[in-house]
Write a protein that binds this DNA or RNA. Structure first.
Lengths: 235, 235
DNA sequence: TAGTGGTCTAGACCACCGG
DNA sequence: CGGTGGTCTAGACCACTAT
């Protein structure tokens, strides 16, 4: 403790993180207890607690009551990914957004879709297909199933003007979701919709969303070659 | 305020989030100030502050001093992505991890790599290529440049037994990184290394890491068809 | 400049879990 | 059961920024 200036919890966090990065504490090492750090740095224990909680959230350390805090022995890369609504993503690049509805059909939810939500009894859904474009060029093809038991209102919406994407975020909030990313080769249909050669490699973003365990929608977005997703570490 | 039980900040967060999800507060709406929420719920202002900070981190609301808290008018999907070291990813699936070094060569850093770090003067790097395998089948091909000005020790390491990936995380911590994901078609060389047909679609994970603005490494990981990355929302 | 979020502090009590 | 992290509280002061 050599300070007379109050330390913010961010400053404490940076201090500890620095000690970890500079290997003053190595992988798996035990860190001093919060109270001790507080005394050493000359601040309140609550301040240290907030700092350590942040490091824990960031995946750099692990904390257990009574067990103390440890530098993660098996480091992980934890990144944060922000995905805007497609319209905004395109417009924020200064390009003109376009939207074209290709299909809209009430269907019994197909087996492979129900499986992704762990459903066994057949439920109805609305399948919606569309293309988003930027400056007139196809940007992504979207294939979506919306569970009409959970979102009955969607049946009365004219999806030729508003995309299901935008209607849902504006009218049907979700309480949880997950995403996965993978690469796939364009089949004839995808190639046509995206105006690329057959066999072109597309980045697929698949997202499931639900509200209190009730499934809302499954969407698969096929993005044209060259499309990149980026993530970074917070802070 | 109808409670007699103390409210945790997580409970306060869930309460507010629920109000947002149920559209008691709509998109863009202004939320009451922290102090008012505290009185209403019967807890300390600090508790509300912690809850709101969490909602802000999660991208659900925006906060500005004097301006107050608002539900985000333009919703975004914010997800967290954890990427383990390749060896662990494979072993945690119960598969046998294999590693094969293909190339290791000191080179002047190529233009396109320097560009990704905003470098102009030529600097040396070590190019390392390898294949990770699972149960004897190729899992990913890794093409990497390590900046030897920043990490000179790497020149003396025998990378035929330890992968650069693992050596770096164990000996050269980073202070920052970013990642991007895209799809690409396998050329002849990639097809051979991954034992897939030419033209197969691969998910590429590209990562830059640095320490205090000094570049450490650029790595491009080409994953065999079928590989999926998954992300979810925290909490 | 006044209003609102951001943070610190000191003390207290609770919750979990390792020895 | 005792040690360590997790949280609450009340009050104070600071730091932005909208008006």
């Amino acid at each position: 403790m050599v300070e007379d200036q109050k330390l913010s919890w961010q400053a404490v966090r940076d201090q500890i993180r620095g000690d970890i990065l500079n290997r003053i504490y190595g992988l798996g090492d035990k860190l001093p207890k919060d109270a001790e750090i507080a005394v050493r740095l000359g601040c309140a224990r609550g301040t240290v607690q907030r700092a350590m909680q942040d490091l824990s959230d960031a995946g750099l350390i692990e904390r257990r009551r009574k067990g103390g805090s440890h530098v993660r022995a098996q480091p992980i890369v934890r990144a944060t990914l922000d995905i805007p609504v497609t319209r905004r993503e395109i417009e924020s690049r200064g390009e003109r957004y376009g939207y074209h509805l290709l299909g809209r059909e009430p269907v019994p939810t197909p087996r492979h879709v129900m499986k992704k939500f762990g459903l066994t009894d057949t439920v109805p859904s609305l399948r919606v297909q569309c293309v988003h474009s930027a400056d007139g060029h196809p940007h992504s093809y979207e294939d979506r199933w919306i569970f009409t038991d959970t979102v009955p209102e969607i049946r009365d919406i004219d999806l030729s003007v508003v995309s299901a994407n935008e209607w849902l975020v504006a009218h049907r909030p979700y309480s949880g979701f997950d995403m996965s990313f993978y690469a796939i080769s364009a089949d004839a249909q995808l190639a046509q919709h995206l105006d690329v050669p057959r066999g072109a490699s597309l980045l697929v973003i698949e997202r499931r969303t639900w509200f209190d365990d009730k499934p809302i929608t499954l969407v698969q977005s096929y993005n044209r070659p060259g499309y990149q997703l980026t993530a970074s570490n917070p802070r």
